[in-house]
Write a protein that binds this DNA or RNA. Structure first.
Lengths: 179, 179
DNA sequence: TATTTTTGTAAGTGATTACTCACTTTTATT
DNA sequence: AATAAAAGTGAGTAATCACTTACAAAAATA
């Protein structure tokens, strides 16, 4: 990866996160990265190719975070970490997740393309095992519900729409018998 | 309201819901409605003016739905209806809510403009009163959590990403001691 | 019926879009 | 050192965008 190639990616990620994929032109990216517009297409083929690359990086990042979550041996501790998961990873790399979420509601073709979200299955697997270990009555439904809750916190945090997240966390921990 | 005026609104609503506000050009709307493109600007001033009108209609629709929810006297029954709320109103008018949700993740300026979502406060008020009446330990946090859950179901339903909604509903009803 | 106002159209406008192409400079290979 | 390949540029391209304007038909008002 060239220095300018990385610069293009970093600039695009930053701008996509700030204003959304559709609102950012390749011209703006080129200006921000200090390169010619043509170079973007030399390296990434198209604007969407650029997005592909960033999404791929995001998926890898997410998979790594999920692996560390999976490695927590104590089930209660793992569930606690799962509740804190959205905040943890957003604090670490906000831009990637802003882009990932904005895609879900962007252009229709683009939405279709990235729909499968490979890591969702992995996350559900972890959660299902955890509820199983903790002898919850209906692990599958517990998993589905908590996935929805975590997803909504994810979005709320990314859009800065939540203020008392810590209070909500301890409220949830009580609900899940973790304190 | 002229016949063609209504036709423009209906076409725009349908197309915005299908492919998102940003992806639909005024030309496409005019073609779909069978009118000249200029007429859109005569009646609504701008493309955004057209969106304003549709959003306003959606807000009124939502307020009416919330009013009927509020009129349920029995608190348990009201909570039950609240859980079913997303499905109820999406079945009735899917297009409006697809547009409302897509806006939240569209263009940055547009997102800012419609951010306040006047009916959210109303919905929270209803829910808070309900949890109060039912003597839940922490009505405020219960409200906040259920608002998140309902919001996520709202989005999942609009995007056809949920299959066992009924099962999820009875699971939730158990959690809230409604059966 | 005459006049004004509203509704509607068709053919534009400049700006912006993603992308291409001919070309030069730099780096790697033999 | 000679040659090939890759990196990079800058000035284009056609298409599309939201929107305007000059004008005609229809409806409302007088």
């Amino acid at each position: 990866m060239t220095e300018k190639q990385r610069k293009i990616l970093d600039t695009a990620l930053e701008l996509f996160a700030l204003e959304g994929y559709n609102s950012i032109s390749t011209k703006k990216i080129a200006q921000g990265a200090g390169v010619s517009e043509g170079l973007i297409f030399k390296h990434f083929g198209s604007k969407e190719g650029l997005l592909d690359y960033l999404v791929e990086e995001g998926v890898e990042l997410m998979n790594r975070e999920l692996d560390t979550l999976m490695q927590i041996s104590d089930a209660s501790e793992r569930l606690r970490a799962t509740l804190r998961f959205p905040k943890t990873i957003i604090d670490r790399n906000p831009a990637y997740w802003k882009v990932q979420i904005s895609i879900k509601f962007a252009n229709h073709e683009i939405k279709e393309k990235y729909h499968n979200s490979s890591f969702m299955g992995k996350a559900m697997g972890i959660l299902n095992d955890t509820f199983d270990e903790l002898n919850f009555e209906n692990p599958q439904m517990e998993t589905q519900l908590l996935m929805q809750i975590i997803g909504s916190f994810f979005m709320a945090l990314v859009n800065d729409e939540i203020e008392n997240y810590d209070e909500m966390l301890s409220f949830l921990e009580k609900k899940y018998n973790l304190k």
